[in-house]
Design a protein around this nucleic acid. Structure first.
Lengths: 223, 223
DNA sequence: GATGATCTTATTGTAAGATAATCCAATCAC
DNA sequence: GTGATTGGATTATCTTACAATAAGATCATC
């Protein structure tokens, strides 16, 4: 039997504030009542209310400026991944699951990428430009950064925003064992990316999928 | 030109605390110094420090209990989706993108599902049980709840934890226009789920994929 | 009258201290 | 030994106060 803790005031208040935002149909930029007013409304001290609002501010739900007050804010995906990345070090994730997830995600968007490539030549140009940057990479850190950018661009090329966000999250967890890439793998990695684009440009979906799958799964042996 | 705000103490402190956790190699369950100690260390008042710790607690990074102190906590995916769901109302997402993303995610895991189904008969039994519940659904709300559970179980059956989380996030955004499901679609929906399981159990990947794709894309017309 | 500096006011930011609630462990009674 | 009690440590919450900031009002000057 677990000792059920008394629900903390600030959590209740934080929820109440969120409900207030919804019920009043407030959107980004709209103002909330002052801290004093809110505290009085909820029947708590201003300090306790602040702990709730500060938490919401940290989550990117509201913004507070001295002399102005509280305003509703739009969500900030960057902020989210930023905090998630902190957990990456603590969290344990099965490398095989991460690899499989990436394969599904990235090979899944390829049909969309091929389709959009036909309409917009800038997509292919952008990807090829990144591959060129690979060749000038001098150290591992740069190489990894470019690799991440390439795969992100690939997802972006699909035009599916949600999957881009998911890709970012996966990369955060990937980071840890990504650094095990050997220098020997560099050249092959660059070539692999180039072949992938060639297949995509030619509309050869099957070959592109196989190439990408092989590339991602090559992380397995290195870990 | 943007007015550059003075960096707020609590944000700096929140980062300092995170750095402290990392530098001391603290893991879930480990304890942090007391509020007073930390405040003294950082040279700020206890109140400011609290605003930082409370924010971190809200994010699920630390936990504070009266009489115990601050302890490092593991990330809480539920908490995360909970807060994201709040933003769903404010955020606008392209329905077509959501549908395409779901198709990629759910059809992508099917090969894994088929493979795991062969080894563990409990998986098929679990999915069929959910389909049975569909038939006893009396109102739209229940129907939707079961539908969500079915698709979640499908992702879970793949054994790929990250994708389960991503599926949850997508469903949050889906909610809005999911309620447009017509009663006429019920029966067809139940049948579609049943056929999907049949194809999976038979190891017929192509048919299963086609069935699932059709099912998800049927949301398009209803929106 | 227009313009820029200054003052006022409202609001959040930070601080220090006090009291209550909670938990853990050591102590004590049996 | 075992269970209840107590004490110390720690957070939870409140109170009060003052500093910092920003927006608008006022006023002097040209």
């Amino acid at each position: 039997m677990k000792t059920l803790r008394r629900p903390k005031i600030r959590d209740q208040v934080a929820n109440q504030i969120q409900q207030y935002i919804v019920s009043e149909k407030l959107g980004p930029g709209d103002r909330l009542p002052t801290e004093s007013k809110l505290a009085e409304t909820f029947g708590i001290s201003r300090m306790s209310l602040r702990e709730a609002t500060k938490a919401l501010e940290f989550l990117g739900i509201v913004e507070s400026k001295a002399g102005v007050g509280l305003t509703v804010r739009c969500i900030d995906m960057e902020r989210l991944t930023e905090h998630l990345s902190f957990h990456a070090g603590l969290l344990e994730a099965d490398p095989q699951q991460l690899i499989d997830s990436r394969v599904i995600l990235e090979t899944g968007v390829l049909p969309h990428v091929v389709q959009r490539m036909k309409k917009d030549p800038a997509i292919e140009a952008g990807l090829r430009e990144i591959v060129r940057q690979f060749e000038s990479a001098r150290d591992l850190k740069t190489f990894i950064a470019i690799d991440i950018q390439f795969h992100r661009s690939l997802l972006e090329a699909s035009g599916l925003q949600p999957l881009v966000a998911f890709g970012d999250l996966l990369h955060v967890f990937f980071q840890r064992f990504r650094e095990s890439v050997k220098k020997a793998g560099w050249k092959e990695g660059v070539e692999s990316h180039r072949r992938l684009i060639d297949h995509l440009a030619a509309g050869n979906l099957d070959k592109a999928t196989a190439e990408l799958r092989k590339h991602i799964e090559s992380h397995k042996e290195r870990s």
